[in-house]
Design a protein around this nucleic acid. Sequence first.
RNA 1: GGCCGGAUGGUGAAGUGGUUCAACACAGCGGUUUGCAAAACCGUCAUUUCGCGGGUUCGAAUCCCGCUCCGGCCUCCA
Length: 487
Amino acid sequence: MPKPNLTLTLTNTLTRAKEAFTPHSANNVTLYVCGITPYDHAHIGHARAYVVFDILFRTLQRLYGDNAVKYARNFTDIDDKIITRAQEVGEQPTQLAQTFIASFHKDMAALNCLPPTAEPKVSDPKVLKGIVAHIDALIEKQFAYVTASGDVMYRTQKFPSFGALAHRKLDEQQHGARVKADDEKESPNDFVLWKANAKSATKLEQAFSPKDLGAKLFSAPGRPGWHIECSVMAKQELGTTIDIHGGGEDLQFPHHCCEIAQSEALLKPGQPLARFWLHNGFITVGGTKMSKSLGNFTTIKDALKSYSAEAIRLWLLQTHYRKPVDYTPAALAAAEASLAKLYATWNAAFKKDPKPAVTAWKGTCSRLNPFRRALADDLNTAAALAELHSASNFLAEALRNGDEQKQRYWRQRMGYMAHHLGLLQNPQAHTAKPQTPLSAAEQALLTAREAARASKNWPESDRLRDELKAQGILIEDGPTGTTWRRA
RNA sequence: GGCCGGAUGGUGAAGUGGUUCAACACAGCGGUUUGCAAAACCGUCAUUUCGCGGGUUCGAAUCCCGCUCCGGCCUCCA
């Protein structure tokens, strides 16, 4: 792979500064992004996180080569929330998790998010064994202790920089602000690595015997705590120090701080779990964070009932990934309109020349430089979109002028940009919304209107046009005849 | 209480010291076109203005200080 002639800069949460990114090894670039706990359908907030990191994944692929980038995104498929939900609906937890993993995969595919190179699950025996071994090692090194009820806790006092990622001094925190303190902890900051059944309301489900998994220093049946899995899966999939670790802003503390403590306790002094930490901002509703617990969420599937997947993607990419995005129908409708315009040009170009669009680009192109620079500048997708619009406008102009050379030129560049952003990728029909053929009744209306127009019966013609519009079919009378499209 | 982030036209939003820096998009408005529309095109759309008040500077939306408002986290969370 050629050495990238662009420097990728990323805002590193560790330093709160934009830093030049260089991978530890240019032919093995590693990215770990915290995935979901599959106990319900994913919502728009999840969509944002994974669209953002999809753009990062694609950008890294362009810079270092498709095969050089390893992107792991996990599923926390062993968890109290899964067990609780499973009991509510009378299902096996594992079955329930499977259902929502499949649902999540569908959502990601709809949103044009590329599949990660690895999607580890906690329930994988390899992961469970790794977790148990990691916990054993932490106990051995005094970084963890077993409580009277059998839990294993991380001893945060052994890790003085705990909380540094979130820039917190722990003695200044309000303990128990949200979750009540646990008497068995040596320090209120300590967190659970292994959750023994003794304190679980759901004793028998998703419970594992540490001994069976090879544990030597703890024994109470139970399940892994939330944070430990990511440490282990990142290590198993990507190695001990990864290039970039990402996730939502809300994971900074405690989740990512706990991961750092768990992982770095077993690494050489000064060796980090991750060199770069990236966090995306929230989706808000009326200014308040969209979340499961507040109940103010819209699932991706529900949003897809009203808006095309690419409009959702476009809407998300209009804002820089660290800023909040407010979910409003008006904003989605505006994105849909903007996308429809892009597709109108795109579609017209395909009618002229049905060859597939360019997706890859070898070498340099001065017209693509602003686009590439925008994405390399801390993933400035808003600026990158402006370049896409610009290419679209030039292509539309070339189509009007009949300049075939420029049509090819701009179509290639537009195609490349759209592909990088994961937009304009609907196969066959080059429109955002599916254009199902007219029904017999609809066709009859259209034919009747044609007849009325031929006899210059304008009132009848307009009445039929309104009737079609009411059914979601928009009529356009052009010089070469009448066309229709579904709104 | 501690820590973190945000505030840019009617709307979303880019821009973090200086030659179109207020990009781009959506909406609106005027026009061309059309039987009328739609679509498209042309034009217009923050002109001492970037939450407020100071300061630094030859020069600030951009840096510094103070303030207001909004949001997030402080062991469920993307």
